[in-house]
């Protein structure tokens, strides 16, 4: 009985909303989901915007900070990056690095 119980609980846990364990992780996912509209589902773009899935976390953090601070030219990304704090940029970068 105990063994079956453990397996069932693990199975239940395994299918949970990724990051659903903690509210701040879920906020990271919600933040990242809004990026899909231009950069594709999970950061895999099907159009002119660059894919961001699987890019290194450092690269994403550096690029978003440069956009935000006006050190890298962009059309719209400077306007968007200005809406995110350092911590939020790190959370987004970690999320897309794992896709």
């Amino acid at each position: 009985m105990r063994a079956i119980g453990c397996i069932t609980i693990l199975a239940l846990a395994g299918l949970v909303l990724p990051g659903g364990a903690r509210a701040e992780d879920q906020r990271g996912i919600i933040m990242a989901n809004t990026c899909h509209s231009c950069h594709g589902t999970d950061g895999r773009s099907v159009g002119a915007m660059p894919s961001i899935a699987g890019k290194s976390s450092d690269y994403i953090v550096e690029t978003l900070r440069k956009f935000r601070d006006g050190k890298k030219p962009s059309t719209v990304m400077a306007r968007i990056a200005k809406g995110f704090s350092d911590d939020e940029i790190v959370a987004l970068a970690k999320h897309f690095a794992q896709q």
């Binding site: 899909h36 509209s37 231009c38 159009g47 002119a48 915007m49 059309t75 719209v76």
Partner: peptide, 9 residues
């Protein structure tokens, strides 16, 4: 990017 947005979304 407008077209890219349309295709991605």
């Amino acid at each position: 990017f407008a077209r890219g947005w349309y295709d991605s979304i």
